[in-house]
Design a protein around this nucleic acid. Sequence first.
DNA 1: TCTCAAATGTTACGGTATAACAAAGTTATT
DNA 2: AATAACTTTGTTATACCGTAACATTTGAGA
Lengths: 144, 144
Amino acid sequence: MEIACFIEAADRHCQQQGVKLTALRRQVLELVLSYTGVVKAYQVLADLQKQRGIAAPPTVYRALDFLVAAGLLHKVDALNGYIVCHHVGCSHEGLILVCGDCGRVEELDATPVLDVLRQQAGSAGFAISQQNLMLTGRCEGCRV
Amino acid sequence: MEIACFIEAADRHCQQQGVKLTALRRQVLELVLSYTGVVKAYQVLADLQKQRGIAAPPTVYRALDFLVAAGLLHKVDALNGYIVCHHVGCSHEGLILVCGDCGRVEELDATPVLDVLRQQAGSAGFAISQQNLMLTGRCEGCRV
DNA sequence: TCTCAAATGTTACGGTATAACAAAGTTATT
DNA sequence: AATAACTTTGTTATACCGTAACATTTGAGA
Ligand SMILES: [Zn+2]
Ligand SMILES: [Zn+2]
Ligand SMILES: [Zn+2]
Ligand SMILES: [Zn+2]
């Protein structure tokens, strides 16, 4: 099972970082993993309520915030959603493509283009930090 | 006055595009221009209410949507806000730099790099839509 | 003037996110 | 073990962000 494998890696990753992947956080991570693409906080909340009987927004938002801070998830601002990071551990800068229609996600290597962007930002006085580029559009399947 | 100058340019720009910068839209644009950085819809709404006595959310959202579509504003998803585009006529895809410390915003032209990204995304089957690139970092003043 | 389409007004609602405080669990120290 | 300090989670309430749906007004063209 792929999810179990990811969870294990996430566990090691958190231990290395000195942060705790508690039962709740693990449960939320599993719920996000159970989707194929972008997931919204209130979807996770609904799932959590099915599994636990009760849960409130802060519970899921806190868990999601933790997982993002730990580098296990990325937030997709344009869609108010979250995706799993499939490059945990490798220090990467990804170009993350998100289909606004079906939520499908693809990750490419953004290193070359980020070099250019770093230089461009640098000449404007900005030192941009390590990060992913996130772009929304339409995947092959969703185009007519 | 700089605002008046911008409004004039915006007017010409809209005429060229065959769209109408109505009184309401102009008023909203002026309100956004009166701020120095990122502005939120409900801030504009509050200002509009001060000037008109009454206004509802759809009024301001419709105006903001129009101004974004016309290329006069950009939406900053990560901050649920809007900024003025200072590249009207040149390009409508911005590289928006946000200082994580002080909130300062700078906009560069993202057209060249987005051409590259479009091609890269295209070979992965994604057709990315018109949008801004947003990067966070530190501005000159906030670096030690 | 009349007609049609675009723009705006208005009401109501749904989706997103956090503040503030209480309770429970963890860890370290005595 | 008992205590204290800290982190995590629970709970309630509320604030913020954005849109659906329909009514009304406005303005350009027949
Ligand atoms: Zn990643
Ligand atoms: Zn798709
Ligand atoms: Zn711009
Ligand atoms: Zn700064």
